[in-house]
């Protein structure tokens, strides 16, 4: 995975601290062209991975990308499914069974209900697989090396102890899409334990990591401990703590944590995108230099006598 990944919250008026800002964003990104323009700025800044929900409007964006294969040659999308509000609204309107009937392609669910037959466990895993297929349709022909389960679903299943669906998702994504499964969660330590127990080692997990303890369930300390153990490939999200921390301070904190493979951020303006990329690069460079200095010091102290003996 690339060090910096571009997110999509700003495109869909998701703002964790201000309804006013979210309104402004929804006006700014009313047209798909505004989204593409911002994506192009991100690409020009050296970011080639876009992580996005399976929102209806992403289908349009995918179409634009497909039409210009040369320009988007190195461009990758990490789909995150499902777009939870779509299903939440459907459940309010249609109930759980009605929602499944509406969103699972084909007659599979209807025939299940009509037949009145006893469902066997495999049926439910199959329903999940069909739903994954439905969500993946819009990405046809686009490079999607990692496919994520959204946090509301990951965490709902986690709390319900429905670990088989989490494992089932991982297996299916590998087998059908030849992609790495990823999980978004607000409960990193708990999820990691469950995935490991289900036989998924070193999973890709995207989770809140920030200086102010925002959405880090159980507290920052246990997250930092989990990171030090290096048991998973982490994408840090919500690094600005929902906007509560100044960007430079926030990025310094997260850049200096161990075992964070990627940092996910979203921004609307050219200046913010470029500043964020530069700041992360600056801290990464500093860390690299610090490592080299430390290595050289080690070499000076121990390495030469050893090699002399040899």
């Amino acid at each position: 995975m690339e060090r910096i990944i571009f997110g999509d919250n700003q495109f869909f008026a998701v703002n964790h601290i201000s309804d006013e800002k979210s309104r402004a964003q929804s006006i700014k990104f009313k047209d798909d062209s505004a989204i593409i323009k911002t994506l192009d700025i991100a690409i020009a800044s050296g970011i080639n991975t876009f992580m996005c929900t399976t929102h209806d409007r992403i289908a349009n964006i995918c179409e634009i990308i497909r039409q210009d294969p040369e320009k988007y040659q190195d461009f990758k999308i990490y789909p995150c499914m499902p777009y939870a509000h779509k299903y939440a609204n459907a459940v309010t309107e249609l109930g759980i069974a009605g929602t499944l009937k509406q969103y699972v392609p084909g007659n599979f669910v209807s025939s299940l209900f009509k037949g009145g037959m006893a469902y066997v466990s495999k049926d439910f895993i199959s329903i999940m697989e069909l739903m994954v297929d439905a969500e993946m349709k819009m990405f046809k022909g686009i490079n999607t090396p990692v496919i994520f389960l959204q946090n509301v679903i990951t965490d709902l299943l986690l709390g319900l102890g429905m670990n088989e669906f989490l494992i089932g998702f991982a297996n299916y994504v590998r087998q059908k899409y030849n992609a790495e499964p990823g999980f978004i969660t607000m409960n990193l330590p708990k999820l990691l334990d469950v995935l490991e127990k289900g036989g998924i080692t070193n999973p890709i997990i995207c989770t809140s990591i920030n200086k102010v303890n925002f959405r880090m369930s159980g507290g920052k300390e246990i997250y930092e401990k989990t990171l030090r153990e290096g048991r998973c490939r982490v994408i840090a999200m919500q690094v600005l703590g929902g906007g509560a921390i100044p960007a430079s301070e926030a990025l310094e904190y997260v850049s200096n944590l161990p075992n964070i493979e990627s940092i996910l951020f979203g921004a609307s303006s050219k200046q913010n995108i470029e500043n964020t990329v530069e700041t992360i690069k600056y801290h990464d460079q500093k860390n690299k230099e610090r490592l080299i200095t430390r290595y050289n010091e080690y070499e000076d102290q121990y390495a030469s006598p050893v090699s002399a003996v040899n």
Partner: peptide
């Protein structure tokens, strides 16, 4: 305040 388990 932070919670022990976050869902929504």
């Amino acid at each position: 305040d932070e919670v022990a388990f976050y869902l929504r």
